[in-house]
Computed example of a mutant assay.
Amino acid sequence: MSSSQEPMKTPVALLIFNRPECTERVFEAIRQAKPSQLLAIADGPRPDRPDDIAKCAAARAIIDRVDWDCEVFKNYADTNLGCGVRPATGISWVFDRVETAIILEDDCIPHPDFFRFCDELLTRYRDDDRVMHISGNNFWASKYQHEDSYLFSRYTLSWGWATWRRAWQHYDYDMKNWLQMAPDRQHQLLQDLLGDDHAVKTWARIFHDASSRDLGCWDYQWTLTCWLQGGLGIVPQVNLVTNIGFDADATHTRSADTNSADCPQLSIPATAINFPLQHPELVTRNLQIDRVIQEICFDYFPKFFKRIQLKLKQLTRSA
């Protein structure tokens, strides 16, 4: 039986920017859950986009509409830091203040059960260093089904997720440990972690490109952080968070991309999960689910990144 009536124990962090319509929908989902603490992280307007000023102000005004018993903390940037630095610094600010957090972006709408799911698992694995990430995402239910309420994976899907200060303390936005490794050591690390030549090549390229230029990402660095610590992520039996950000205002998930052959359609509905949760017997990586996640979520990346590289070259020439 699904239930979302339990009082929330975990603070919620919400990352916002310039999309008040999306922000309002996510805020309403948070409002229904009534966390006792809300930590709002906002990026500033872009200097070349005058319309950002009003949009950013409208998104921030939504946070002022908290009408339940809730302590609100704000971390608002005066200038635009970008969708790499701003989430990274914002999440670090969150864990300077709280031990655990559920983290949502302004285009990720959670099912009510997502909050209880995170609450229970944050408590269950609070002192288990093997577990570093709790995701609300499941894009593969039609491909792979299982009886347990969740499984363990190498991957850290982050359209609605939760973690602990003990895990985030290892986060390295600049990927210093990776850059200090010799190429053969990097390859061996990925081979040991992933055990699949294709996945190794894909992630070697992702990490190389993420560390060599600012592509406005923070989540690949988080994945690497978890891998360097030998950490696992939790993935739910059903999809608990849906992304509504596939539109013209998106940075990485414009609607045109979702219809092309090199970016999968991942905006699927969020559904309820049954409680009480059925826990796996062992805290160990599920190889089968990792193969499915690699195929659905990451095998598009090389083509996607080529398009970004082309855009960067065009911008460089016009500068």
Rank of each mutant, 00 (worst) to 15 (best):
Gln169Thr: 10
Leu121Tyr: 00
Cys217Ser: 11
Ile109Pro: 04
Phe114Ala: 00
Thr79Ile: 12
Cys56Thr: 11
Lys201Gly: 11
Thr202Ser: 14
Cys226Val: 13
Asp299Pro: 03
Leu190Asn: 10
Pro11Leu: 04
Leu122Pro: 01
Asp107Thr: 00
Ala182Thr: 09
Pro280Asp: 05
Gly216Thr: 01
Asp299Met: 10
Glu99Phe: 09
Phe207Arg: 11
Asn243Gln: 12
Leu215Val: 15
Asn286Gln: 03
Asp249His: 15
Gln145Asn: 07
Lys55Phe: 13
Ile41Asp: 07
Asp69Trp: 12
Ile62Thr: 07
Glu21Lys: 11
Val283Ile: 15
Leu157Asp: 05
Gly90Leu: 03
Trp222Phe: 13
Tyr171Asp: 13
Val66Phe: 13
Val292Glu: 15
Gly136Tyr: 02
Ser92Asp: 14
Lys201Ala: 14
Ile16Ala: 09
Tyr220Asn: 14
Phe73Asn: 10
Ile293Cys: 03
Asp172Leu: 05
Asn18Glu: 15
Phe17Val: 09
Leu277Trp: 02
Asp96His: 12
Phe95Asn: 01
Cys118Thr: 00
Asn286Val: 02
Ile134Asp: 13
Cys22Asp: 14
His208Leu: 11
Tyr150Gly: 00
Pro110Ile: 00
Ala61Met: 05
Pro45Gln: 04
Ile109Thr: 06
Cys263Pro: 01
Trp168Ala: 07
Met175Trp: 12
Glu28His: 15
Gln309Pro: 08
Lys74Trp: 09
Phe17Pro: 05
Arg213Ser: 09
Leu228Lys: 13
Asp172Thr: 08
Asn138Pro: 00
Asp127Tyr: 06
Leu228Cys: 13
Lys306Ala: 11
Pro87Asn: 03
Glu295Gly: 02
Thr316Cys: 11
Thr284Ile: 10
Ile268Cys: 10
Glu120Tyr: 03
Val241Ala: 04
Cys83Pro: 07
Leu14Trp: 02
His187Glu: 14
Lys9Arg: 13
Gln288Met: 06
Asp128Gly: 06
Ala13Phe: 07
Ile308Leu: 12
Ile234Phe: 03
Leu15Gly: 12
Glu24Asp: 09
Arg86Glu: 10
Gln32Val: 14
Lys306Tyr: 09
Ala167Cys: 10
Val94Phe: 08
Leu151Val: 15
Gly160Asp: 01
Ala33Ser: 15
Asp299Phe: 10
Ala250Leu: 03
Asp48Gly: 08
Glu28Gly: 04
Tyr300Gly: 04
Thr123Met: 08
Thr163Lys: 06
Phe139Gln: 09
Ile134Cys: 08
Arg86Ile: 09
Asn80Ala: 07
Cys108Ala: 12
Arg86Cys: 10
Asn80Lys: 06
Arg154Ser: 13
Ala141Lys: 05
Asp48Gln: 10
Ala29Gly: 00
Ala88Lys: 00
Asn177Met: 14
Ile53Val: 15
Ser135Trp: 00
Ser211Met: 11
Gln221Ile: 04
Ile63Asp: 10
Ala162Glu: 05
Pro236Asp: 01
Asn243Arg: 02
Asp52Cys: 02
Ile102Arg: 01
Val85Gln: 08
Arg116Phe: 07
Asn75Thr: 00
Thr79Asp: 12
Cys263Val: 05
Gln288Ala: 13
Asp69Lys: 14
Leu104Phe: 08
Arg124His: 06
Ala141Cys: 02
Ala261Gly: 06
Thr89Pro: 06
Leu81Trp: 06
Arg291Cys: 00
Lys9Ala: 13
